[in-house]
Design a protein around this nucleic acid. Structure first.
Lengths: 158, 158
DNA sequence: CGGATCTCAGCTCAACTGACATTT
DNA sequence: CAAATGTCAGTTGAGCTGAGATCC
């Protein structure tokens, strides 16, 4: 009856698309995001919040518009993220005296300390994601991912 | 003023998270899904529709519940997808005489032909996604992705 | 009756769009 | 005035939940 045999169809996996890079990358992306979210949640933090803190630490204080472009977070979403981070004292939002449209966003000492904890969580998520791979394979994979991605970002794309 | 220099902040890329596997995999996943969607759109088809056709071709006729489990599409989403495919004559939805709760979904000849065209589109999307990598690197990457993913799926995970 | 099947309506969450007031 | 900035309300789309009707 074509419906009986395979005993375990939950993990069937025979479809052709499951062997394609795009499918496997998509599945790994879901796992990666879940692992990351779980790790950050243990610190009471969401991925957007981490990205903002990391952008401030790596790129220095900036206006919201600049911060959005650097971190890849849309300005509208950034507003809510910054509200949360400001409430927790991880950032300061000061008016720019030189341009009254802008806020200057600055990482506080508390934010810097929190970021250090999040970086440990981030590393744990990477480790869980690539648990099946030996260290040298992880390096190889990271290099290949970087090259593939740089190639796509270099091209106009469309 | 910390806001002036870098000239091109659209592609800043200095943040620490942009070097992590989970970030790069996530970005590649977005590119991959976009490329796939564009390719399939040229045939008037959506990714869900392809997955159903491929599942039928690779696993044979099946009930909707079985098809959903095999293709990883939720039953509620599968209903709409099957409606579209049936309207186009790519599948047939026949009542199961042995169990009147079930529909038996079968790939039609038209559906089979359409799937062949989609497989070409799928290959084109893979090629575009990995355009920056040489053939041997693509094989290496595919192998590493498979091993990482199998490792995650093998573990209870949580 | 418990459990599977199909269907539909609605929810979640990240990402994005549009509109607005203010300032340059 | 055109353009940039910060804010808010609302939309999209994939994935998921819940409920109901039917049948085993």
């Amino acid at each position: 009856m074509a419906d009986d045999m395979p005993a375990n169809e939950q993990t069937w996996g025979g479809e052709r698309f499951r062997r394609t890079p795009s499918w496997m990358i998509g599945q790994l992306s879901v796992h990666g995001y879940r692992l990351l979210t779980e790790q950050f949640a243990a610190e009471g933090t969401k991925p957007y919040e981490y990205r903002v803190l990391a952008s401030l630490a790596d790129g220095g204080p900036a206006s919201q518009a600049t911060l959005g472009r650097r971190s890849g977070i849309h300005l509208s979403d950034l507003v809510a993220t910054l509200n949360t981070l400001a409430d927790r004292g991880h950032i300061r939002r000061d008016p720019d005296p030189a341009d009254r449209r802008r806020n200057i966003i600055t990482l506080t000492d508390d934010g810097f300390d929190h970021l250090a904890r999040l970086d440990i969580r981030l590393a744990a998520a990477q480790d869980a994601l690539l648990a099946a791979l030996a260290p040298t394979d992880r390096i190889t994979l990271t290099d290949l991912l970087k090259r593939a991605l740089d190639g796509l970002n270099a091209r106009p794309g469309r």
